Simulated scan of single mutants.
Amino acid sequence: MPPRREDPEIARLVSEQILAALPNIVSQVAAGLNANQANNQGTTANRDCTYKGFRACNPKEFHGTEGAVGLLTWIEGMESVLHISKCAEGRKVEFAACLLQGRALTWWNTQIQTRGREATNGLTWEEFKKLLKEEYCPRSEIQKLEAELWNHEMKESDVDSYTARFHELAKLVPHLVSPEENRIDRYVWGLAPEIRGNVTSANPKTLQDAVNLATKLTNNAIRSGSFANDKVKGKRRMEEPVRRNYSERGGKAQKMIRNFGVQSQTGEKGKGTYPKCGKCNYHHSGRCIICFRCNKGGHFAKDCKIGGSRTCHECGSPNHFRITCPKLN
């Protein structure tokens, strides 16, 4: 069969009809896509903003007895829960207020009686936080935290403890370290003098950069012994075993000397390292001991066993004293 020839006029009419219908087709397809997207968003929003989903994140309760630090910590944790649960702005206060217990719940019920339930639940999150801080954060407590942050310094080479406490205080009183430049400056100011200059010279752009640099410099300074206190501690740690061993050796030597002395003193009577005395025939040092009773050496008259009470110390006669001895008179 010969090929069929298309009529140019028919092809032209078909093309015009397609072009005329194309905008309507595109509009219908776009409308369908938008409707599906809106339905999906509405379903997701309804699912994420329920109270059940909020409680599934395990938010903590607040009783009103935790003090200023406890309240600030609770607010910080609550904001994390509200973010994770994707809670709508208009439901934040209503959901968070359900976690108030004890004294805090009594205070909140008073607010409801005064303002009305709609007005209290309609408060913004910032207004709700302000009311809580006015009630449970006395100015004196905030001033203590501000003073601690202002005077917070690194102790010796313990950069980890310094950094951890700095983060805690910065969260409790953020107005002292805002904006980010002030936060970095305050952190660097409290570092140990051994590393502060190097961190300042590096001009860190973020707080994390400053923390990483301070940790690295501290570790290097510890290894090189740049920290004066660590030098002293290291020296003491090195000297303690030496001193202990020396004391042990000295104690043993002294014990040997003492034992040797005891043995020398308890040896055979009259013998030793001293020369023999010509008067008493005993080995001793210093003046010779002569008994005035028996005129012999080696003992005193009170220890003499020869003669009675009337013994003459001059001639040894028991019949008279030395003062009446015929040899002297």
Rank of each mutant, 00 (worst) to 15 (best):
S161I: 08
V188A: 10
K216C: 08
Q143Y: 08
T218E: 10
T114G: 01
A192I: 01
A192Y: 09
K205G: 14
V188Y: 10
T114P: 00
D158P: 01
I184K: 12
C137E: 06
T218F: 07
L217I: 03
Q111P: 00
N219I: 06
T110R: 15
W108Q: 01
S157K: 13
S161N: 14
T215R: 15
H152F: 07
L213D: 01
L172N: 03
Y162V: 05
L176Q: 13
K133L: 02
A170Y: 07
T206C: 09
Q208A: 08
R115H: 06
N182G: 05
E118S: 08
R186S: 10
S178C: 03
N151M: 07
E148D: 10
S140F: 11
P138N: 14
G122T: 04
A214Q: 07
L217H: 05
I195K: 11
V177P: 02
W189G: 04
A147E: 09
T124N: 01
L149S: 12
V188Q: 09
G122W: 05
N203C: 09
E141G: 02
H167V: 07
G116C: 02
R117G: 01
E118Q: 10
Q113V: 06
E168H: 08
G122I: 03
K155I: 04
H152V: 05
I195R: 11
L131H: 01
E153M: 14
A202H: 13
D185L: 08
K216E: 13
S140P: 01
N203Q: 15
L99Q: 05
E148H: 11
L169C: 03
Q101C: 00
R139A: 01
G190Q: 09
N198V: 04
K155R: 10
V177Y: 09
K129T: 00
Q208G: 04
W150F: 15
E156P: 03
D158K: 09
C137P: 00
N151G: 03
K144R: 11
L123I: 00
P204E: 12
L149F: 12
A214S: 15
S157R: 12
D158N: 15
R103M: 04
Q111K: 14
E146W: 06
P193N: 12
K205R: 12
S224G: 01
L149M: 15
T163Y: 06
G197S: 09
V211M: 13
V173A: 02
R103Q: 13
L176E: 06
I184V: 13
L99N: 02
V177F: 07
K133Q: 13
A104I: 05
T200S: 12
I222S: 09
E146A: 07
A104C: 05
K205W: 04
K144C: 03
Y136Q: 11
T106S: 12
V159N: 09
